[in-house]
Structures are given as C-alpha cells and as structure tokens.
Design a protein around this nucleic acid. Sequence first.
DNA 1: ATAAACCCTGACATCAATGTCAGAGTCAAC
DNA 2: GTTGACTCTGACATTGATGTCAGGGTTTAT
Lengths: 119, 119
Amino acid sequence: MKIGELSKATGASVRSLRYYEQKGLLTASRQASGYREYNQLAIEQVNTIQLYLSLGLSTEQIAGFLHCVMISKEAFCAEVLPVYEKKLAEIDEQLALLTAIRSNLIDRIASIREERMEE
Amino acid sequence: MKIGELSKATGASVRSLRYYEQKGLLTASRQASGYREYNQLAIEQVNTIQLYLSLGLSTEQIAGFLHCVMISKEAFCAEVLPVYEKKLAEIDEQLALLTAIRSNLIDRIASIREERMEE
DNA sequence: ATAAACCCTGACATCAATGTCAGAGTCAAC
DNA sequence: GTTGACTCTGACATTGATGTCAGGGTTTAT
C-alpha cells in the first residue's frame, strides 16, 4: 500500500502520515523507487494514533506507548495510565481557567445589559 | 515616566509595553533621546489592557474599543458587547470539547484500573 | 512515448503574546 | 569622565500538528 492509499483508508492527510513517521509513530519500508510501502496493519496503527491525538496527547507521548498498545491491551502498558492522569490534570486546570473567565464574561455582559436598560 | 518605570508600575514587561504600542494599544511621546515618555494615564491604560487580555481577548479586539472604554463606561461602547459574546461562544465551545475529552479520559482510566484489579 | 496522477524531500507558514539576544546609544551617579 | 543601568531597534525563538508549495523523480494508462 502506498501513502495515498493509506491516506484514503484512514482519513489522515499524506502530510500527517509523513509527520507521524518523522515522530517515530509509523514506519514504512521503501520500494526501489523510494516510495513508502505500508502493510495492512498500518491502517489500524494510524487509526490508533488519531484516537490518541483526539484525546489531546502529543506525538511524543503517543510514541512512548504506541508499540505496546498495538500488541497488548492498554491496561498492560505501564506508560499509558500516567500519561492519561497527567492529561486529565491539565484539562482540569484548563477547565478551571475557562470557567472562571466564563463567569467573568457573563457578569460583564449582564452589567452592560443592565446599564443599558436603565436608560 | 520612562518605559522601565511604567513596567514596574504595571507589572507588564518592557517587551510587552513595546508590543502594545506596535499593536496600537498604547502611545508614547518621545524625548530628544528617542526614549519613550509616558504620562500617568498610561498606568491605568496598561492595567486595562491586561484586564482584557486576561479575559482572553486579542490585542486586535482590544484595540477596537480601548479608546472608548478609557473615556466612557463599557456599556456606552458599542464594540464591547459583541466581542464579549463572541468570546463567550468560543469558550463554551472549548468547554464542550474539553469536557468530552475529560469524560473519555476518566472512562479509560477507570477501565485500566478495573482490568488490573481483576488480576 | 506522453500525459496525468502520484510520490519524494525540504522548507516556509500558521497563531500570538512574550522572552531573549545583539549591537548601539543615553543617562545618572560618583 | 567613567561605569553601570537604562533605552533603542530588529530579529529570532517559542508551541505543534498540519497546509502548501517548489522542484524533481516515478508510475500507469492510453
């Protein structure tokens, strides 16, 4: 399978597939022409990469456990849980910040509306 | 007042004060030497800029109404409310995304813990 | 054999406020 | 008058997955 086919099979852009390779998430053998050659397992692997990316993990974090999760269950891969916990802590931090800003905005919007009503 | 003094008075870095000027948020007269010269009002203006930045507004958005809010109440400045409403919508979007990821992570963490308990 | 479609690498752009550095000029205090 | 602290401009770096382009080689179908 060439890179364009893998792209269509997974929805990942050709550019992204090359980037995953550069980051050590994906490997390909090479044809005599220099073209990348992928096997069927690559489809599942790319799907897995995109799943973890959608959780907000970095390619570096994913690289740390991708090999393990491709051959075992997540629970068996010691690297996964700490990464999840770290990400969860980051998200809780972001949620707290956004929630505070949200309250502030809502108050300010209400104040403006009230001041205008008084006229 | 020179830029270092304004920096100390407001907590904004010298670099940031020059950036605000570049973005049209802050103006300064110049001494013969080329040094920027600020008046007392600049302190209040910088504090105001930083307040809006802390709400997540961009310098471009702030530039759109800063002059007005420095001389009037927010409610009098027509530009403010739409900017607040746009920002609020963006934040609600981000909150929805982060909340979804958070649920997903919590489920996955629980699954891993359960699978490990079974051994 | 030619054209269209595909692939390669390398590089720059994105977003945006801020840090940091270099090289040079200015000011203040002693 | 010298030294240290301050200021100036301009430029590059940060963050990170992805888009896009240029210039060139390959494959495939006609």
